[in-house]
Write a protein that binds this DNA or RNA. Structure first.
Lengths: 227, 227
DNA sequence: AAAGATTTTTAATTTAAATTAAAATATTTT
DNA sequence: AAAATATTTTAATTTAAATTAAAAATCTTT
């Protein structure tokens, strides 16, 4: 695998995360990247030219970018590193899930495939990181799981769900979830949808709370195996 | 603690390692540093000016450098990080001691005190790394132990020694030690000194070998508690 | 103590990445 | 479809670090 600079790895990762979710040949535009990476459009254009030179992206000026197969491979490997480190930090070093982001951002750029494969083995090949994000395996394959947004959960047809992950890693949001007791793996019951702010009434054990769309739009869930 | 660049941390660490062993107000010179760091004298001078600006070193042009208290603190913290990571790589991820150097060189620059303190706790506060180098604690204090070079061991007065550490981390040297079965903690018996190449006859269990000065000059030993 | 050798510093360049402001191109609105 | 607005690119600077070659200082030798 060719060696990339830290900035290059970060760009590829960000492009991957902004293109993946959407349709086939969708392009990410310059501004989206400059915002996601907290930099300016000018800096982004500069870097896009370099990445295009190296055949890591398909770049159409004024239109946007896409990853090449090579670029996608690198982006997925960076994600793999990031998520394995996050898993290690939370499960072994006892970091809280709202604090691991910055540290994993640094650790993910350590350049050693052997390190990552040994770390993966040591951690016993986890499939999901502490935020519920899938960890690609050494071949770059993601584990499959059908999840939906809590906000899209069909209350009428069914009403039990298990928390699978979160869409934002914003520290305040994560601390808020800690505070109310929501964590990955928790089984909740969705009792009612309330029009005001698209709120939902959810409950588990002896708890019953109302959360609005700013919460439900950021939580992924799946249906339990045995209803 | 003020934040340093990777290059700055490396310079401080190298100065520390080249000044520490010798007398009180010894100075390291530019050329020593350029060789130790695989760079040119010109680059070193540039960096020395910056470090001096930041009051991390005492720099006397044409004479050499020394660390200030502040610089020493930073250098020791960098060593702490490097050695804790080496310990982790060998004891937990099962790396061999000849392979950890490059990776630890990268890991030591991850910027998070909390990470290091949690790692230290997780590792159960080890005092020596896999090469036998002392790991400073969170206060910057080194464990104390009286070791001597195997080549200086007084064969006549006493003849048992325990391997404490190695002075070079050269991979071929370490693999050689693996090959002949010498490892940290091994108790050996020093049977004889032989003038040719300052060789020594050493033995343990059913093994008996002769090693010359290029080996004995790079091995640290100490005397067993109960002779 | 002067000549020659070695070491150090200075100064001019190079590279990767970021920033800013101006110019060019798209998109949206009327 | 032209005008107004958004976005994107270009070009000129900035910063950290490294390199190279020339100039300056120091050390060694006689």
């Amino acid at each position: 695998m060719a060696k990339l600079t830290i900035a290059e790895e970060n760009y590829l990762k960000t492009i991957f995360l902004n293109v993946d979710s959407q349709q086939e040949d969708c392009l990410v535009n310059t501004n989206t990247l400059s915002q996601a990476m907290n930099t300016t459009a000018g800096s982004v254009t500069d870097m896009l030219k370099k990445l295009s030179e190296k055949e890591l992206i398909h770049y159409i000026p004024y239109k946007g970018v896409n990853l090449t197969e090579k670029g996608k491979k690198m982006a997925i490997f960076t994600l793999r590193k990031q998520r394995l480190w996050e898993y290690f930090l939370v499960t072994h070093l006892k970091f809280s899930w709202d604090k691991v982001h910055e540290i994993a951002e640094q650790l993910e750029h350590i350049d050693s495939e052997e390190l990552i494969e040994k770390l993966d083995e040591y951690l016993n090949y986890p499939e999901y990181d502490p935020h519920g994000d899938p960890i690609p395996n050494a071949k770059g394959e993601f584990p499959q799981r059908k999840t939906i947004l809590l906000s899209d959960f069909p209350v009428n047809t069914y009403n039990k769900a298990i928390i699978a992950g979160v869409l934002t890693h914003n520290a305040d949001f994560l601390k808020f979830l800690d505070r109310i007791g929501i964590h990955i793996g928790l089984e909740i019951q969705i009792t009612e949808k309330i029009p005001f702010e698209d709120s939902m009434l959810i409950q588990w054990k002896n708890k019953e709370i109302i959360i609005n769309r700013s919460i439900t739009n950021n939580i992924l869930v799946y249906k339990p195996e045995n209803p």
